[in-house]
Nucleic acid binder design. Sequence first.
DNA 1: CGATATTGCTCAGTATGCTGATGATCAGTA
DNA 2: TACTGATCATCAGCATACTGAGCAATATCG
Lengths: 151, 151
Amino acid sequence: MKDNNEMPGHLARRFQQIAVAVFLAEVENAGFDLTPVQYAALATIKANPGLDQVTLAGLIAYDRTTITGVIDRLVQKGLAERRASPRDRRARELEITDEGRRILRKVTPAVESAQRVMLRGLSAREGEELMRLLRKAIAAGNELSRAPLRE
Amino acid sequence: MKDNNEMPGHLARRFQQIAVAVFLAEVENAGFDLTPVQYAALATIKANPGLDQVTLAGLIAYDRTTITGVIDRLVQKGLAERRASPRDRRARELEITDEGRRILRKVTPAVESAQRVMLRGLSAREGEELMRLLRKAIAAGNELSRAPLRE
DNA sequence: CGATATTGCTCAGTATGCTGATGATCAGTA
DNA sequence: TACTGATCATCAGCATACTGAGCAATATCG
């Protein structure tokens, strides 16, 4: 068997593991309680008011069944609302609440700080290159997961 | 808010998401039912017979509480054994079974194939560079997660 | 128009991952 | 040796993630 350090799968998991830990630490340090998914969902709802859950899932590349629970928790925290769509009675329209907007605004600096911390071992140039390569690999593999990105 | 494509955290999650999907698809395609964690644990047990669970967790950078469940499932599948350590009665010594050895040998080509597929959008050179940058970022962030790598 | 396919959402079930706690045991020291 | 702190494993609880199935509603096509 190859060394773990030669396995992109292992490196991917490890980097993601650190990224999540850094995110949670920075956000908690700023006094908030919001997971990476919850942040991504909330920011996307704010940018696309009234969107339905499937569209939201596609925009951030999450599985639709995962989104159900994430929205549950955002609603429970009073950060988002879920209401029946008047146009399509199957769909739920999502809206951010005022409280959601407030939290989002206040937590964003911590989120951006987290993005820097997770790259702290790299020069600015290397960080850019890492992101470029990740974007390229992701674009090629987009359809390989059950939750591809949908623009 | 920044674009998701500028957020290393988002890119990390997405790449990992694809990597897991590719792993599971390749392994299932080869006729096996083994998750990434289970594979990593089994391979590490084989390479370090008699190791305890904390050491195993450290070698592959998994949380010790996660490993408990992973070993449960490996044992249930008959691929590994957990027995009390004669030297330290707190610890459990882990061993791979003959069946585990057989599965590991047969599934390894699929695992290696998966590593290639998840980099299929990149040239060989870019793949190497991506791994190098991931290793560097990971090394710098090793202590930031609850489950750091321990050699 | 009506049968059929598709879509939006949810649910049950399984497997990671994490936090924090507990019990049993071990190691180091006063 | 008795005490204290550390260590190994597990557990309860929570939050992703995914598979596959089901329900309700919409879209499509003959």
